[in-house]
Computed example of a mutant assay.
Amino acid sequence: MTDISFYHLLHQPLTSALPKLLDKVHGAGMKAVIRVGSEERMMELDEVLWTFKPDSFLPHGDMKCKYPDQQVIYLTTEEENPAGASVLVLVDSMESTLIADYDRCLEMFDGRNDEATAAARGRWKTYKEAGHTLTYWQQTEQGGWSKKA
């Protein structure tokens, strides 16, 4: 079963919170696929990953890059994992039928959006019924995470 962690964004947007989590994933030597809801979102996150720290960047590519099988962090709108990543990150209320192919899944949702929150609750229930290990993290005012379940 896949370990699935829900990240409830309350005080900082995805563009601030996601790079910090990906920095930890990358620092642990893991590869990640980030499934986004649109090409516009993919382009936005691409820019953020290049610039979120003034003195460094997160190595990554997207579904339009020349060597997808060599990407440590891979942005896509599709159900694909060309580099054999062990971590799946779902944003924009995206879902995946390939959850079981990953060791970890990070579900990030905007708690200020009622529709996104309701969708996340539905996915929590589905994952729980499927037997996945679930954790729930709520964003603190400082941008960190507090484990709630």
Results as ranks from 00 to 15, higher is better:
residue 102 Y to C: 12
residue 102 Y to A: 09
residue 102 Y to I: 03
residue 103 D to I: 07
residue 104 R to T: 07
residue 104 R to F: 03
residue 104 R to W: 12
residue 105 C to N: 00
residue 106 L to A: 07
residue 106 L to W: 01
residue 107 E to A: 00
residue 107 E to S: 00
residue 107 E to Y: 03
residue 107 E to T: 00
residue 107 E to P: 00
residue 108 M to R: 02
residue 108 M to S: 03
residue 108 M to T: 04
residue 108 M to C: 01
residue 109 F to T: 05
residue 109 F to G: 02
residue 109 F to L: 02
residue 109 F to D: 01
residue 110 D to L: 09
residue 110 D to W: 05
residue 111 G to H: 04
residue 111 G to V: 00
residue 112 R to G: 11
residue 112 R to Y: 04
residue 112 R to M: 08
residue 113 N to P: 09
residue 113 N to D: 15
residue 113 N to I: 07
residue 113 N to W: 05
residue 114 D to P: 14
residue 114 D to Y: 04
residue 115 E to N: 11
residue 115 E to T: 08
residue 115 E to A: 12
residue 115 E to P: 04
residue 115 E to Q: 01
residue 115 E to R: 11
residue 115 E to K: 10
residue 115 E to W: 08
residue 116 A to V: 08
residue 116 A to H: 07
residue 117 T to I: 11
residue 118 A to Q: 08
residue 118 A to Y: 03
residue 119 A to S: 08
residue 119 A to M: 03
residue 119 A to Y: 08
residue 120 A to Q: 04
residue 120 A to V: 10
residue 120 A to K: 02
residue 120 A to E: 01
residue 121 R to Y: 06
residue 121 R to K: 10
residue 122 G to E: 14
residue 122 G to L: 12
residue 122 G to N: 15
residue 123 R to L: 15
residue 123 R to Y: 06
residue 124 W to E: 07
residue 124 W to T: 06
residue 125 K to S: 09
residue 125 K to W: 07
residue 125 K to P: 13
residue 126 T to R: 13
residue 126 T to C: 10
residue 127 Y to C: 06
residue 127 Y to E: 06
residue 127 Y to M: 00
residue 127 Y to N: 07
residue 127 Y to R: 01
residue 128 K to S: 13
residue 128 K to L: 15
residue 128 K to D: 10
residue 128 K to T: 02
residue 129 E to C: 06
residue 129 E to N: 10
residue 129 E to H: 13
residue 130 A to N: 13
residue 130 A to D: 12
residue 131 G to E: 04
residue 132 H to F: 10
residue 132 H to L: 08
residue 132 H to I: 06
residue 132 H to W: 03
residue 132 H to R: 11
residue 133 T to W: 08
residue 133 T to M: 15
residue 133 T to D: 10
residue 133 T to F: 14
residue 133 T to Q: 15
